[in-house]
């Protein structure tokens, strides 16, 4: 009998291989977080001793934590991976950012639009994402192979039936699918797998003393000089870690002393709040995530 993590691992590998075999031009969305790290490890396993049969794509909003970018470049180099980094140049020229334009516009322009640009530019017909169904209630509704129209839209009311593990991989030119190999993993599964497999992750997940300002209940880390401080606002040194990573002004830290994976797991078991609570983009409108997904966000 396989244990729980073994089953999840094999299910994900099956999905990865299915896409490589059936699609003309797949790509793996790499967001640098813990889920991406696990997904990348699974992909390396799926095709060993061969190399990855697809490139990685990072949509860079230019507002990621500096630690994330460093980690991304190290990872790509150590595995000899073909990494594409895409930035929405139009958005950058117009100076779109989370501080000046707010979370909704920033996410729309620098993430969703940028992602669609990159997919169109390279003509990808399948894109892996590390999203999990346990993350958020609209994601709990999504298929493993999630069909997107030629304008990258998701239609949650007309999802293709998805029976057994017989995936419908057919798309017309211009259409695509988003594929979620980690659909059935939980946050806890991800950490246990990282522990078991000794998978490197960004240090921001572990507790450390960091410069923090508190804004509207959110603990924002002052990662660089682009974060404008109010006259009487001074960053205080706090022992924090991040449960999830995104653009630094939009991602809240949590007070924590969990500096190892077992400590993180123990903390999660007692936690009374959800993983994405610290993500501003989930709460900037009613049904936030679903609306962003309809427009083409992951």
């Amino acid at each position: 009998m396989l244990n729980h993590l073994d089953r999840l691992e094999s299910e994900s590998i099956h999905i990865l291989r299915e896409v490589a075999a059936e699609f003309r031009n797949p790509v793996m969305l790499y967001s640098i977080g813990k889920d991406s790290s696990v997904m990348l490890r699974l992909a390396l396993k799926a095709f060993t001793p061969g190399n990855l049969p697809f490139p990685l794509l990072h949509v860079d909003t230019t507002w990621k934590f500096r630690d994330m970018i460093r980690f991304r470049d190290e990872t790509a180099a150590s595995h000899g991976i073909d990494l594409i980094v895409h930035v929405n140049r139009d958005g950058l020229e117009q100076g779109v950012g989370p501080v000046t334009h707010g979370s909704r516009v920033h996410t729309e322009v620098m993430k969703t639009e940028a992602l669609k640009q990159a997919l169109d530019l390279h003509g990808f017909d399948a894109a892996f994402g590390g999203a999990r169904r346990d993350e958020e209630k609209s994601r709990a509704k999504e298929r493993i192979f999630s069909f997107r129209s030629s304008t990258h839209r998701w239609d949650p009311k007309r999802q293709r039936p998805e029976l057994w593990n017989l995936y419908n991989t057919r798309v017309l030119p211009g259409e695509s699918v988003r594929v979620f190999p980690l659909s059935n993993w939980t946050e806890l599964d991800v950490w246990q797998y990282i522990q078991r497999e000794n998978i490197p992750v960004v240090p921001l997940y572990f507790a450390a003393v960091r410069p923090i300002v508190e804004r509207g209940g959110l603990l924002v880390m002052v990662d660089d000089e682009r974060l404008p401080l109010e006259p009487r606002e001074t960053p205080s040194e706090m022992l924090v870690r991040f449960r999830t990573l995104g653009c630094y002004p939009l991602t809240g830290a949590i007070p924590s002393s969990a500096a190892t994976i077992p400590e993180i797991v123990a903390e999660l078991r007692q936690s009374r709040t959800s993983e994405r609570e610290g993500r501003v983009i989930d709460h900037d409108q009613l049904g936030s995530m679903e609306k962003k997904k309809l427009e083409g966000y992951f």
Partner: peptide, 8 residues
């Protein structure tokens, strides 16, 4: 340097 999973 990146942190890894081997907890001390």
């Amino acid at each position: 340097m990146s942190a890894s999973g081997n907890a001390p």
